[in-house]
């Protein structure tokens, strides 16, 4: 499977995502430059963490207008895989590929810490290697990761089982104390209705090696590799994604 990792000006975890894909998972991974439109034939585009355009104005607000994003939106519409981590998640929300928005953490502070996540939905190409309700540990590091959406959207997300990951405590309860940023319903990651676009605040690329942050995020990547190999995911093409 071929992966593309976009570098916006201000992307930071692009190197780490490429390292995880290439060195750890042995995938064919290429770097994509924000000023270009060519996706180099990739099966999945990963929008990495960082501070695209310094996060000036709003996180992800300017990156969504990069030339490369036209092609990314197009790929998503065709049913291709698009995956946003942290700042990438923010870009996907700004671009309307995922519903809702990410605002300042409740504490007003940047937080870097490992968190416990409960896998809420395994019938997605990104989580098929987990069992429902499984608890995994992946680090977060963000200042604006508080997920919000209007009540109707939120209800739809829950009803359609689009909430994929939720912040929980070590016994698996989604309590306010286990919620690091104030996200509504403890939401850490969601997919779109067609399940080919995935955004999450935690950084799975920093949880793929025993020595460096553990392996809690490894199976997110393996899930997509499996889904791609099996051709099991048949997104409902031609349906407008997002809201």
């Amino acid at each position: 499977m071929r992966w593309g990792v976009v570098t916006f000006p201000g992307s930071n975890d692009d190197h780490d995502a490429l390292y995880a894909l290439d060195h750890v998972l042995g995938q064919d991974a290429v770097s994509l430059w924000h000023k270009e439109r060519d996706l180099k034939g990739v099966d999945c585009v990963l929008l990495p963490g960082g501070f695209s355009y310094g996060d000036y104005l709003r996180c992800g607000a300017m990156a969504r207008f990069s030339p490369i994003m036209e092609s990314v939106v197009e790929l998503a519409r065709r049913g291709g895989f698009v995956w946003g981590v942290c700042n990438g998640f923010q870009v996907l929300c700004e671009a309307g590929l995922l519903p809702g928005a990410l605002i300042r953490n409740r504490s007003l502070q940047f937080i870097c810490t490992p968190v416990q996540l409960r896998v809420e939905e395994t019938e997605t190409p990104f989580t098929n290697q987990y069992t429902r309700g499984e608890i995994i540990s992946i680090p977060i590091k963000h200042g604006e990761g508080c997920y919000i959406a209007d009540p109707v959207t939120l209800e739809q997300l829950e009803e359609n089982r689009q909430v994929v990951l939720r912040y929980v405590d070590s016994s698996g309860r989604a309590t306010p104390e286990a919620n690091p940023n104030g996200a509504l319903n403890n939401i850490a990651g969601i997919v779109n209705a067609q399940r080919n676009v995935f955004g999450l605040m935690p950084h799975p690329e920093h949880a793929v090696e025993k020595l460096v942050g553990g392996e809690g995020g490894l199976r997110l990547f393996q899930s997509l590799i499996t889904a791609h190999a099996d051709g099991t995911h048949r997104p409902a093409a031609a349906v407008a994604p997002g809201h």
Binding site: A20, F110, C112, K141, H203, V212, G213
Partner: peptide, 14 residues
């Protein structure tokens, strides 16, 4: 203090 710093980026932090 240090929770406010990204200590992980570049994937080298053992």
């Amino acid at each position: 203090v240090y929770r406010q710093y990204d200590s992980l980026v570049r994937s080298n932090t053992i």
